[in-house]
Each structure stands twice: as structure tokens, then as C-alpha cells.
């Protein structure tokens, strides 16, 4: 009986997530289109609303090419290794007070583990393809992901110090109060670094050197086609939504209402927490798209310098500053 509830819960998370991924691709093309004074997809269905469905169906019927020189087994297993952690990480995300599939004590550690596993799929994909572009893309991607993983980890240490718990629901509870009690304010540098590292971790523009269309064509997935390519695509967008959800959970109060502690609190008391959570996720996803539309791509040495010589020193310093804040019990956050 319990197993049925668990499976039902998983379906309730995965199906909306897949739909969000589909419509995130649509939103991306539309929004970037408008930012570049185009109108984006507008042919399939009213205003192009059916475009993602059409894309998915098209990809299903496309040929899956397995290059002669590739390691067939690793080639097929790599996309599965990328999508599984991108989905499984959602198990510990609290959507609303009490609405969490696995309310575990080591939630944040689990997230850190899951987001690190994805890089294996990328390395395996690049290696198994046995193509120069794929190999270069995988090398770049691996070095980039591990570099930004450190800055991300240090940012998480700051969150842990402020919240005193690894459990994501308790981290949200620790931000209870008002919009100024949310961790974005005392952890402002860490929040900025966490989000930018998140953009880098998901290989999104302006850190998309692993895919760099204009230099190494598509990077690690250049040899992939059809559904296998679609899985990589799905995983990338699921990871974007995950980073947006984590940023809102850790720094922007998750399901907490932004009107808490103001005169509007009772007016908006009827709005479910899930609504605020989705609004926050959508806002951070907009930033992902906005970055892509406005910033030129980094050069590889600039990328490495930003990760190692800017982000890591700042996070280290802020961890020390934060421990002083906590020691002197700085109000209103650390009373």
C-alpha cells in the first residue's frame, strides 16, 4: 500500500516536471525571440502552443545513429545516467509545508550527491562517441562542472550554518518571518555565487563552452540523434528547473509567502505555498533565459579564473564573516 502511494507521488512530480520542461523550451524560444525582436515559434497550434509537442513527436521518429567507432553500450547508457539523477534529485524538494516525497535528514547532502553524478554521464557520452568534438566537449564540461561544484559547495555551507540543518523543509522553516528573514539578505554574496555556479553547472550560456555551437558544434552530444539526444535535452532543462527550485528553497524561502509580516499577509493567506514556490522558480528560470539572450560566451581561461580565483575566495571570506555574525547573534537572523 505504501509503495503505491510512493509511486503515485513520484508520478505527481515527474509528469508535471516533464510538462514544465517541454514548455520551458517553448518559453525559452518565445522569450529570447521577443528579446531579439523576433516572435519565435508561431506556426504549430495557436501562437505556437503545440510546438514542444510537435518537437517531441518528431524526435521520437528520428533515426538513432550509433557511430561505427563508438562503444555501443556506453553510448546508449550515457543519456540514462544523465537523466536519472536530474529526476531523482526532486525526491527531497519540499513543494509546500508537508508536501515532500522523502523528508530525510540528509536532504541537502543528497542533492549535492545527485547533482554531482550527472557529470559521469557527460564524460561517458563524450568518451563513448569517439569523436573529436564530443571528446573536447566532455573534457571542458567535466573541468567546468567540478570547478563550479566547489563554489557551489561552499555556498551551501553558508546555508547550513544559517539554518543549522540539512533537511530542506527545516531550512525553509528557518527563514520564516518576512521577506527580509529569507537567507538572500544575510547570504547575499553566497546567493549570487550559488545561482551563477548553477548556470555554469547546467552548461547554460554564458558558460556553454561544453556545447559551444560555434566552435565544437554541440560538444559532448554531437554524435547523438533522435530520442537519445532528446534525453540529454530533457535532463539539461530538468536540471535548470532543479537549480531554480533549489535557489528559491535555500535563499528565497521556498513556499513562504513574500507578504509575510506585512499588512498584506492576511489578504494573501488563502494562496497556497505551492503558488509562491512556482512563482519563484519561474522568476529564476527567466534569469536563465535572460542571461542566454544578453551575455556573450566566456573564454575558457576566463571561466576557470572566475570559478577558482573569484568565487572560491569570496565564498571562503563570507563563511568567516557569517560565523562572526552567528557568534555575535546578529539580529534579526541569528538570534
Amino acid at each position: 500500500m505504501e509503495i503505491i502511494y510512493i509511486l503515485l507521488g513520484i508520478i505527481l512530480i515527474v509528469v508535471p516536471l516533464m510538462l514544465s520542461v517541454a514548455y520551458l523550451t517553448y518559453a525559452e524560444r518565445k522569450i529570447i525571440g521577443y528579446m531579439q525582436v523576433r516572435i519565435g515559434p508561431n506556426r504549430v497550434g495557436p501562437r505556437g502552443w503545440l510546438q514542444p509537442i510537435a518537437d517531441a513527436v518528431k524526435l521520437m521518429f528520428k533515426e538513432i545513429i550509433i557511430p561505427t567507432n563508438a562503444n555501443t553500450f556506453l553510448f546508449i547508457i550515457a543519456p540514462i545516467l544523465v537523466i536519472a539523477p536530474a529526476l531523482a534529485a526532486w525526491a527531497v524538494i519540499p513543494f509546500m509545508s508537508g508536501w515532500v516525497l522523502a523528508d530525510i535528514n540528509a536532504g541537502l547532502l543528497y542533492i549535492l550527491a545527485m547533482t554531482s553524478i550527472g557529470v559521469y554521464g557527460i564524460i561517458i557520452a563524450g568518451w563513448a562517441s569517439n569523436s573529436k568534438y564530443a571528446f573536447l566537449g566532455a573534457l571542458r564540461s567535466a573541468a567546468q562542472i567540478v570547478s563550479y561544484e566547489i563554489a557551489m559547495g561552499f555556498a551551501l555551507v553558508g546555508v547550513l550554518m544559517a539554518a543549522g540543518s540539512l533537511n530542506l523543509s527545516q531550512i525553509i522553516q528557518a527563514q520564516n518571518g518576512s521577506i527580509f528573514h529569507w537567507f538572500w539578505l544575510p547570504l547575499l554574496p553566497l546567493f549570487v555565487i550559488y545561482f551563477i555556479s548553477g548556470v555554469a553547472e547546467t552548461n547554460r550560456s554564458p558558460f556553454d563552452l561544453a556545447e559551444g555551437e560555434s566552435e565544437i558544434v554541440a560538444g559532448f552530444h554531437v554524435e547523438y540523434s533522435g530520442m537519445l539526444f532528446a534525453i540529454f535535452f530533457l535532463a539539461e532543462y530538468a536540471n535548470m528547473i532543479l537549480i531554480a527550485a533549489l535557489t528559491s528553497t535555500l535563499f528565497w524561502g521556498g513556499w513562504l509567502s513574500p507578504f509575510q509580516g506585512t499588512f498584506l499577509e492576511s489578504t494573501f493567506a488563502w494562496v497556497p505555498g505551492l503558488f509562491w514556490f512556482i512563482i519563484k522558480i519561474a522568476l529564476f528560470l527567466l534569469f536563465f533565459l535572460w542571461f542566454r539572450a544578453t551575455f556573450p560566451r566566456y573564454r575558457y581561461d576566463q571561466l576557470m579564473r572566475l570559478g577558482w580565483k573569484v568565487f572560491i575566495p569570496i565564498t571562503l571570506v563570507w563563511i568567516v564573516v557569517l560565523s562572526v555574525f552567528i557568534l555575535v547573534k546578529l539580529p534579526p537572523w541569528f538570534v
Binding site: 509503495i3 509511486l7 531523482a88 525526491a91 522523502a102
Partner: peptide, 8 residues
């Protein structure tokens, strides 16, 4: 509590 994770 960890069972859902295995399933996921």
C-alpha cells in the same frame, strides 16, 4: 524515509 529515494 529513504525508500521513496530508491524508487525515484
Amino acid at each position: 524515509n529513504y525508500l521513496p529515494i530508491l524508487f525515484f
